[in-house]
Design a binder for these strands. Structure first.
Lengths: 161, 161
DNA sequence: CATATCAGTTCTGAAAAGAAACTTATTGGC
DNA sequence: GCCAATAAGTTTCTTTTCAGAACTGATATG
């Protein structure tokens, strides 16, 4: 299976991974969320091979996650910014970071704290149910075919319920 | 840079990605959250090469995300289950899936619906602030050095604030 | 006019993935 | 007893992708 074909799969995770399901891509996005915008910033901070960085920035731009805009002419220099679609990835990246804070940090603790500007507190993100506002745990969620479901693509245990 | 070294990086995202930052790994975890446990189930549903699957299951087990347990002796057959550490990845995977539902689904809509068993409603997960319970958007979060911070590892714009 | 900056591209060897056959242990049918 | 089937891998071989380093091109600076 080629990863480019994943965007035609009937699975939102596969479709998402066809865009961001790559280590370097996610690391580049982390830098974007920390305010980085320029090619050399990404390179210096990540230690990524330049052609891989160029490739990831191009793909993210084509996918509409980043936009490329000139920040100066003569010589023309471009920078990359998150689009609204890109900014929407924040919960996913925050969830991954928090899992690392919790399960992969040493005794020292989390390397970064996040402060919610609007309330002023150091915070964690908590996934809650849009309907009852209670925190979500995996065992409390059941899956059903949705409007975009394709026959045969669901696992037997989902169909059976 | 080798990805195996990422777990020693001073960045929780890098540390997380050293464990789950691989397309196949995340697809395997999706199957785990859908209730799959056996080697052949993973293989049949994902179309993954067998030695790649064996490698990912081994790494996830070593990382403590899955546990291997025999579901029968003679012949001995093993299955893989999510540990608590693995179940903790649910918010991250849900966030990725929902991004796909929102930005990558066709006109047909999301392939799956998720039902919150405890309240009975079809739901989305919403990332809210642990302190004020308001939904989190990227622009509303500021980063500060945490207890596990390492000098020089923070971007200039974080140090400057 | 040599050097520096920034955003890339090109080249080459190494690592990882894909496809398919092979292995091991055991049960069930003929 | 022998053959096929099942499940969970392992091995082998080929193709693709990746990492590292050097090179390019437009412009500004000393």
């Amino acid at each position: 299976m080629r990863w480019e074909d994943l965007d035609r799969e009937c699975c939102s995770l596969a479709r998402t991974l066809s865009v961001v399901g790559d280590r370097w891509t996610l690391m580049v996005l982390r830098e974007c969320f920390l305010g980085m915008r320029r090619f050399e910033e990404f390179e210096a901070r990540l230690g990524i091979a330049r052609h891989v960085l160029a490739d990831r920035l191009k793909k993210l731009t084509e996918a509409g996650v980043l936009t490329k805009r000139a920040y100066q002419e003569r010589p023309r220099r471009e920078e990359y910014r998150l689009t609204d679609k890109g900014l929407d990835l924040y919960p996913a990246i925050l969830a991954l970071v928090q899992w690392g804070d919790r399960h992969m940090a040493g005794e020292a603790g989390a390397p970064l704290l996040r402060v919610h500007k609007s309330c002023g507190h150091a915070m964690r993100g908590v996934m809650v149910c849009s309907e009852c506002n209670e925190p979500i745990v995996a065992r409390d969620v059941r899956v059903e075919p949705g409007p975009g479901a394709v026959e045969g693509a669901l696992p037997a245990m989902v169909r059976a319920r």
